[in-house]
């Protein structure tokens, strides 16, 4: 071998040996704390109850509701069509397989939004995309659709429209148009699809 090759050969050898001896790096599969904090401070992860109800009614195939409470609470009551993955189980392989599917938008909910938000943070750290949090959780769900008072007489038309929409949602999910005591005009209620908010639209 001619002498001119000695240096390159030595360089390659040294580099590959150093590569083997390098101290192992932290695993790549997670976000840096700074990036995670940036994501946390942006509120785009929250989806309103109105939007989720609207998408449920339109049978949006990309919506996947995930209940992060424990299975006892899940069996007592859960939102229609939702899947139960308790937080303790969220990083298990089978859960990860479900959550890494493309083309779905996963909306987490819990009793209010603390637990769902924490789940979101854990998964975001692991680099998951297309995950959202139901703002207010089940408490907000019932507040908006089941215990909401009608708007005042003086309220503007937008508020009335929203109320109408919510009554429609209530009717859809209870499935009993005439039974409810305070709604004699239940049949007339038409569910008008609300404009989709951009919050859950993103994703690459």
């Amino acid at each position: 071998m001619s002498r001119k090759y000695i240096i390159p050969v030595a360089l390659l050898l040294i580099l590959s040996i150093v590569l083997v001896l390098l101290p192992r790096k932290q695993d790549h599969s997670q976000m840096s704390p700074e990036e995670l904090l940036r994501q946390i401070n942006s509120t785009s992860r929250f989806v309103s109850t109105d939007e989720v109800a609207d998408r449920l009614i339109r049978k949006d195939p990309s919506l996947a509701l995930i209940d992060v409470r424990n299975d006892k609470l899940f069996s007592e009551y859960s939102l229609p069509g939702s899947l139960n993955i308790p937080v303790d189980n969220i990083l298990a392989d089978e859960s990860q397989e479900i959550l890494s599917q493309e083309g779905l938008e996963f909306v987490f909910y819990s009793t209010d939004d603390i637990l769902a938000d924490q789940t979101w943070i854990i998964l975001k750290r692991k680099g998951l995309k297309n995950i959202y949090v139901l703002k207010g959780g089940l408490n907000e769900w019932f507040r908006t659709f089941f215990t909401n008072p009608p708007p005042a007489e003086t309220a503007d038309s937008e508020e009335f429209a929203l109320y109408q929409f919510r009554m429609g949602v209530r009717q859809y999910f209870t499935g009993t148009p005439a039974d409810s005591p305070e709604k004699s005009s239940a049949e007339k209620i038409i569910i008008t699809p609300k404009k989709k908010k951009s919050a859950a639209e993103g994703g690459c």
Binding site: P61, Y77, G81, F173, T174, T176
Partner: peptide, 22 residues
């Protein structure tokens, strides 16, 4: 609350959408 509107939670099944496909 649901019962007060004349539904039990099991009657809700009618509104069920497809579960997540894996």
């Amino acid at each position: 609350i649901l019962n007060s509107f004349g539904t039990s939670s099991s009657a809700q099944e009618t509104g069920k959408t497809e579960p997540v496909r894996i």
